[in-house]
């Protein structure tokens, strides 16, 4: 324990003074929209630790799980815009809820000031390496010939994406609900499903040659596999882009927005965070500034509306 405490004390001492002209009037609370130990939690804590060290701000990370971040954003919306309350979440659950049950959601995109993005979850359709097809067209053919392929998925947008592909191609693929990426990988390795969506935990298995890429599901091709075409490229005109992002309550002063955004950008540029994100998420941190993040949210909402046919 002594060593631990000594280590912590050393961290506190070496913290550099704030460089920006804005500084919070007390501790900053970074709310995480998911429980302890998940990907968003790990990501948030890594970024918070790095920002703490570079700015000297006291950042307290607090988990507010519920509804894929909806409970957290609901609470964040009620907090004062002093820069002392920030929330980190994922775009998809928010956009989906804003699309399909707008009356139940107590906030809109305008309820928040956007600080920036942290990373893009790269979603792909993968299959066991010995599957008799190599791309989406092959999967569709296989499904038609075998009375319906089974596809593992773990979020509504993925289901809609498959619904669109089914409707346009008559593939008649059946969805199998998974509770996590890890469960999907397990079912692929065990041969229980034909293919499955995955957002990173499959990558090590590409390297061992146990799984293979069938299609990317983002707007752009997967950064780790640039030769894999996306579902959109295959002619279905749909994609899913889950971004991790940080927002604050509406009305945050501009200097605070800039200062926090700069600190976030610096944290994402640091090697520690980069390596850690690569290891957990198998993707690179991507920082988009406030305006770009806001635009990304708008475009995302429009895209989700297309997915849901609204």
């Amino acid at each position: 324990m002594k060593r631990l405490l000594a280590g912590l004390a050393a961290l506190a001492l070496t913290a550099a003074p704030a460089l920006a002209d804005w500084s919070p009037k007390g501790p900053i609370n970074l709310y995480i929209g998911f429980g302890a130990g998940g990907e968003t939690d790990t990501l948030g804590r890594l970024v918070a630790e790095e920002m703490k060290q570079s700015t000297g701000w006291n950042i307290v990370v607090d988990n507010k799980p519920g509804g894929g971040g909806m409970a957290m954003f609901t609470q964040l919306n009620k907090m004062p815009p002093t820069g002392q309350f920030l929330g980190m979440g994922v775009t998809m659950p928010v956009l989906v809820n804003l699309t399909i049950r707008p009356d139940e959601v107590p906030f809109t995109l305008d309820s928040f000031t956007y600080i920036g993005t942290v990373a893009l979850a790269e979603l792909a359709i993968v299959a066991p390496a010995d599957a008799p097809f190599d791309d989406l067209a092959g999967l569709i053919e296989f499904s038609k010939a075998n009375g319906g392929a089974t596809i593992g998925f773990d979020a509504p947008p993925q289901k809609l994406l498959v619904d669109v592909v089914n409707a346009q191609s008559g593939a008649d693929m059946r969805l199998v609900s998974m509770e996590s990426s890890a469960e999907a990988v397990q079912n692929l390795l065990g041969g229980h499903v034909t293919a499955a969506f995955n957002a990173g935990s499959h990558i090590p298995y590409l390297e061992t040659g146990e799984l293979k890429m069938i299609a990317g599901a983002n707007e752009t091709r997967p950064s780790y596999s640039p030769d894999t075409p996306t579902v959109e490229e295959a002619g279905f005109g749909v994609y899913v882009d889950p971004w991790y992002y940080i927002a604050a309550p509406k009305g945050l002063p501009e200097e605070a927005q800039t200062a926090i955004g700069d600190a976030l950008k610096a944290a994402l540029d640091s090697d520690t965070v980069k390596t850690a994100i690569e290891n957990t998420m198998h993707t690179e941190p991507v920082f988009k500034g406030p305006a770009e993040t806001r635009a990304m949210m708008e475009a995302g909402l429009a895209n989700v509306k297309t997915l849901f046919g609204k």
């Binding site: 799980p65 519920g66 509804g67 894929g68 909806m70 409970a71 609901t74 139940e104």
Partner: peptide, 8 residues
Amino acid sequence: FGYFQLYD
């Protein structure tokens, strides 16, 4: 019952 916490 209107609570997002209950979604999980």
